[in-house]
Nucleic acid binder design. Structure first.
Lengths: 390, 390
DNA sequence: CCATATTGTTCATATCTTGAACTATTAATT
DNA sequence: AATTAATAGTTCAAGATATGAACAATATGG
């Protein structure tokens, strides 16, 4: 809940942020901004002209119109500021720079195994950030923040990586404070599910759905709810543990303490162990050709996945589910099986549909998404840079 | 997401609403308000004095202080405005009036079966509202709105009751528009789970928890998530269908299309059918005396309930669960069984605790809560009454 | 009685948005 | 080619609001 009073300053900043936010989504004219926000034309003119003078915004030409003066489109200046991303994976660590449009400006990668301790890794990360910025002549004052993407669980408030499986080297590492010691910038730690969901929201399959569960399938099964453009975190940032929804109360025990958790059935590893195939793509191809054995595998997978997703649908009242991960090879068949089952097994589908969609994120999304929080923060920030233009 | 620009008016209204909201929670001095909201003392003085002049606020005496001038406590004027509530139940319909402090001013009740059609019922409701207001000399201009509480599912946006089981007479009744035709007031339709959760939040067990699931057990099992004081509705207002979380994929089929839904096991009716007891209180008493058969019933109940709740914990990352309904007779035993199971079976409890608590709502809560939305709306409304005092 | 601390008020000032009038630009019409 | 009408964008005085500093009002305690 909002607990702070407003005044002329916050008023101005709110309106600035509102306009920037809208322009960021898509270039738009001043008149249109006035219409959409309900602000007066004069206010829009004043604020946008300030932003242009500061170098944050620019005019990018006119649009067709049926009559009257042509509207002048306004757009973000992509290189007004930059964001740094650090992407921690079990196999590799990436350091990257993007501009304000989340376009990749530079990226350096190293194998995780090459680091003998977290200190060495953090040292390399900081050194690399500095080098890459210098190489591109980007002063620190032009960097809006550093985003760190890591497997969960983690404490995003304190900026500490907790105990992600197969990631022991980084357990309990207070990575945010370590990096903040080196850089006087906002530093954010987020788990990769949240970041990928944000990226999907900005540019992918989530679109205008209001209440979408973004599901990530890899070693485990994680998810992140995006509700009206906002991440739902839960009380400690651990919401969305879809992999530990029990789909069989008498099923095999899970390290989490429960029995029959979804992760024990529907991950790639679980499927391979149970059905003994090598290559998932071959299975899918066979299923498309109508081979019964392959079809059985997909149906098994769909049955368990649907069981978990129906719980999520019933609790979150979703209008869309986006799946990201290893199962996106010719996904239509699996997705239609899933969609059918979810439709049959949940009450809500009698009132409104629940779309089941594959992710539209590209192969580099997991790296680039590490800057998503930084950019979101920048564009919704109360106090956007009011220094003179560089 | 906020899409409207702000100006001097909205600024003022936001600040007014912020102060009223805070004062509503607990009487407080101007100085304290300034501290908590970050507003200047002058602004607080101006706004509160306006509110006092309008008759919304009053000074209710001073507080002790260690040194210096004693702070003057400000409080809502309870009878500045009133709210009307309509509480629809399967057995009875209640029409009631509360003041701004949600204190009952008057209540009239009728058996549902006495109404031969929805038209007759709506007619009686409207007539009764008018009568009760007249009797107490409350003009319509002093009524801030009408809240209608109904079993779900319903379309809260359109104000239509959909298809609640055992409630066929009211199916598809556009009750909000019917009542709005008679009264030029804001009319809200909400399901009773949401309203009870709001009531629990304002005055009960939820307190300072940030992410609490309020669970209602009666014919079915419903729930409502309260997140940072806000109701989580989902995309169509159907979030929280805890009763249709499957706790046994091969269990008995449920009318919802799924199998093994929690409702099939953990409601009072299901328990009675399975174990053949008459009086739940007797069972609980026996369990406290250590009788094995009774204990078995409680453990059965706890096992299934916990299975459903663990799913909710894993998806919502709850920090508390509040149970309301038929099982609140000597609840400590059941609750400790539940708490144990939830602790064992969910990952999140390794990071932070999840409290399991009985509701603190009194017996009249379900009636009075029907005005909760109206009052919440009134106190967070953008345009709070600026007419001259009556 | 005086020093000190805290609450609450007053008023000139600064900042912001607004709304009306105005300029700029374009397509359609005559 | 001139005119009309519509739309986009700008300017500026007016109006509303919160602020901050000075001040008034209480209260405690030595």
């Amino acid at each position: 809940m909002k607990t702070n009073g407003s005044n002329a300053n916050t008023l101005r900043n709110d309106n600035r942020a509102l306009l920037l936010h809208r322009i960021r989504r898509q270039p738009v004219s001043r008149a249109q901004l006035a219409k959409e926000t309900g602000m007066s034309k004069s206010a829009v003119t004043m604020i946008t002209n300030d932003l242009i003078a500061e170098g944050q915004l620019r005019e990018i030409g006119t649009m067709e119109s049926r009559k009257g003066r042509k509207p002048i489109l306004l757009d973000i200046v992509p290189d007004f500021r930059y964001a740094v991303g650090v992407s921690l994976h079990r196999k590799r660590i990436q350091v990257l720079i993007t501009n304000l449009k989340a376009e990749l400006v530079g990226c350096v990668e190293e194998h995780t195994e090459r680091f003998t301790s977290p200190e060495v890794a953090v040292g390399w990360i900081c050194r690399t950030i500095r080098q890459e910025l210098e190489r591109r002549r980007i002063p620190l004052s032009k960097v809006v923040g550093i985003g760190i993407s890591s497997p969960g669980p983690l404490d995003y408030r304190e900026g500490v990586i907790l105990t992600p499986p197969n990631f022991t080297m980084f357990h309990h590492l207070p990575i945010v404070s370590r990096i903040r010691d080196e850089f006087p910038l906002p530093v954010f730690l987020e788990n990769n599910a949240v970041l990928l969901a944000m990226a999907e929201y900005s540019s992918g399959a989530i679109g205008d759905y209001r209440n979408t569960l973004f599901v990530i399938m890899s070693h485990g099964i994680g998810s992140c709810l995006i509700r009206e453009g906002q991440v739902f975190r839960g009380s400690g940032g651990f919401a969305g543990e879809l992999g530990h929804i029990s789909v069989d109360p008498d099923g095999r025990p899970c390290p989490c303490g429960n029995r029959g958790c979804l992760e024990q059935y529907a991950t790639m590893a679980a499927l391979k162990e149970r059905f003994g195939f090598e290559n998932y793509a071959d299975v899918v191809d066979a299923a498309y050709r109508g081979e019964g054995a392959a079809m059985e595998i997909l149906e098994y997978q769909a049955r368990y996945l649907a069981a978990g997703l129906v719980s999520a649908v019933n609790l979150f009242d979703l209008d869309a589910i986006v799946l990201y991960g290893e199962f996106n090879y010719r996904p239509e068949l699996l997705f239609s099986l899933l969609s059918q089952r979810i439709h049959q097994q949940s009450l809500i589908t009698r009132v409104h549909p629940v779309a089941v969609l594959p992710s539209q994120l590209g192969p580099y999304a997991d790296a680039v998404s590490s800057t998503a929080v930084v950019l979101n923060q920048h564009f919704s920030q109360k106090l956007i840079n009011t220094e003179a233009p560089a």
